[in-house]
Design a binder for these strands. Structure first.
Length: 306
DNA sequence: CGATGTCAAGGAATC
DNA sequence: GATTCCTTGACATCG
C-alpha cells in the first residue's frame, strides 16, 4: 500500500457511474447548483471507497466564462452557501480537491482574446475554491501553453494579468511536446509557481534527458514547505487489437500502435511499485492517477499493491 | 431505440 | 493558407 495519497480525475465509473457536472447545453440552462449536487454524490462515493484525492470537472459552472452568455456569470454568487457546504464536506473527509482547465485555457496565447478568456477561467476556478474554503493544497493545474519564440515570456506576462486569488491557486505542469520539465522549471523559477511533474509527459518529451529521480526532486523542490506537492502518474497505452474481416469468413488480427502519450486504461502495478519504492524513496507527495478507467484503475491498483 | 452529428473554446502538424 | 488531428463524452437530433 502506497503511503502517497492517490487520486483520480473527474469521471466516476464505479457505482454505475456518477456524472461529474451538469452537462446540459446552454439552451437548457445548466447550473453550478446541479453540478454541486453531483459533486456531493461523488464525495459520498469517495468516502465509501476511502479515496482521498479527486480532480473536479473544469466545467462545474457551465458556460460561466462564455463571452456571449453573460447571464451565466453569477453562478458562484448564486451558490455561495452550497459551495461552502460542499467544501466543508470535502475538508471533513480529508479529500484533496484540484482542477485542471482544458486545453483551451492558454494563458500565453498570442491572441489577446484567448489570454483574456484564460484569465477569466482561472479567476473562476479560484473563486470556486475560495468559496468552498479549501486550503492551499487545492490547486489549479495548467500547462504553460503554446510554443514559439518568447513563449515563456508571454506566459509570465499572462501570469501578471491574474488577480492574487488566481495566482495563489495556480501550478504548472510539463507537457508532452512543448514545455518540457526543464522549460517549466525555468518558468517556475521566474514566477514562483510550483511544478506538477507528469511522468508520462516527461518520458515523451525530455530533451535534457533528466533521470526520473532527479526530475521528481526538482519538481518537488518548487513547492512551498507547507503545501504537499503532487504529481501526475499514468501508464502508456499498449497496442490496440484490431480484427479485420477478410472476404467473408477469415479474420485477421492486427495491432495498431497508439501514440506514445496515450494513457492506458489501467496503471501498470509493477512499474508503479518500482516507482514508489525506488524513484520516490523517502519523498513525500500525492499522486494523481491518469488512467482511462479512472476510479476503477485506482481501486484496482490499490488492490494490487495491498 | 439506436445511430449519427454536434459542442464554446486553441494550437500544432500536415497538406 | 487551409484542413485535420488531438481526445472526449454525452447531449441532441434524426431515422
Amino acid at each position: 500500500m502506497s503511503r502517497h495519497r492517490l487520486g483520480f480525475a473527474v469521471k466516476v465509473l464505479g457505482a454505475g457511474g456518477i456524472p461529474s457536472h451538469d452537462t446540459r447545453r446552454w439552451q437548457s440552462g445548466p447550473h453550478l447548483r446541479v453540478s454541486l449536487d453531483r459533486l456531493d454524490e461523488i464525495l459520498s462515493y469517495l468516502e465509501r471507497n476511502a479515496i482521498t484525492m479527486y480532480r473536479m470537472s473544469s466545467s462545474l459552472a457551465p458556460y460561466a466564462t462564455h463571452p456571449d452568455l453573460p447571464e451565466f456569470h453569477h453562478q458562484v454568487d448564486e451558490c455561495r452557501d452550497r459551495l461552502a457546504e460542499v467544501g466543508a464536506r470535502a475538508r471533513s473527509l480529508g479529500v484533496r480537491l484540484s482542477a485542471h482547465p482544458s486545453q483551451y485555457v492558454v494563458l500565453n496565447s498570442e491572441s489577446e482574446d484567448v489570454r483574456a478568456a484564460a484569465v477569466r477561467d482561472l479567476e473562476l476556478h479560484a473563486a470556486l475554491f475560495d468559496a468552498m474554503e479549501l486550503d492551499r493544497e487545492a490547486v489549479v493545474v495548467l500547462h504553460v501553453g503554446s510554443g514559439g519564440t518568447g513563449a515563456a515570456d508571454r506566459f509570465l506576462r499572462g501570469f501578471e494579468l491574474l488577480p492574487d486569488a488566481a495566482r495563489a491557486r495556480l501550478v504548472i505542469e510539463n507537457d508532452d511536446r512543448v514545455f518540457s520539465l526543464t522549460d517549466v522549471l525555468d518558468v517556475s523559477r521566474r514566477s514562483g509557481l510550483p511544478v506538477v511533474w507528469d511522468i508520462l509527459h516527461h518520458h515523451c518529451h525530455d530533451p535534457a534527458g533528466i533521470p526520473d529521480r532527479d526530475a521528481l526532486e526538482l519538481a518537488l523542490a518548487t513547492w512551498p514547505a507547507e503545501v504537499k506537492p503532487k504529481i501526475h502518474y499514468s501508464s502508456p497505452k499498449t497496442a490496440v487489437e484490431r480484427r479485420k474481416r477478410r472476404r467473408g469468413r477469415r479474420v485477421e488480427t492486427q495491432y495498431v500502435l497508439p501514440p506514445l502519450r496515450a494513457h492506458a486504461d489501467l496503471i501498470d502495478p509493477i512499474a508503479f511499485r518500482q516507482f514508489v519504492a525506488h524513484t520516490a524513496a523517502g519523498l513525500d507527495f500525492d499522486i494523481m492517477l491518469e488512467a482511462k478507467a479512472k476510479d476503477l484503475a485506482l481501486l484496482r491498483l490499490r488492490e494490487q499493491l495491498s
